[in-house]
């Protein structure tokens, strides 16, 4: 996972997350949209044949003075917590 910051201000972040696909990016986006202080989150990904930027680019906009990089770090840990909770629930049922 190679990260490359394309644009960063106090409230906005555009970052390339190389090597990831929809599997992880969509889960991460979903998690970010539910986080406090995040007003917008989306990602863009072009198909292989497009010849342009093919690695996913994540865009985050924050509000209430939240730093977008912090929001991203918290979003990532929220994904981990969610998958762990799912694993526990599945193991309990299995």
């Amino acid at each position: 996972m190679e990260l490359r910051v394309i644009e960063k201000t106090d409230t906005e972040l555009r970052i390339e997350i190389a090597g990831e696909d929809h599997t992880f990016m969509n889960v991460l986006k979903g998690e970010l949209l539910e986080a406090d202080g995040v007003s917008a989150a989306t990602y863009n990904m072009n198909p292989e044949q497009s010849g342009g930027q093919t690695e996913p680019v994540l865009s985050i906009t924050t509000e209430n003075g939240r730093d977008p990089l912090d929001a991203l770090a918290d979003g990532a840990s929220a994904v981990r917590e969610t998958t762990d909770a799912f694993k526990d629930a599945f193991e309990a049922a299995a």
């Binding site: 996972m1 992880f24 889960v27 994904v79 998958t83 762990d84």
Partner: peptide
């Protein structure tokens, strides 16, 4: 589920 969690850890550590 673990593979998704691993990637989240990796991203968290990288950020």
């Amino acid at each position: 589920a673990e593979s998704l969690g691993d990637r989240a850890d990796e991203l968290h550590d990288a950020v």
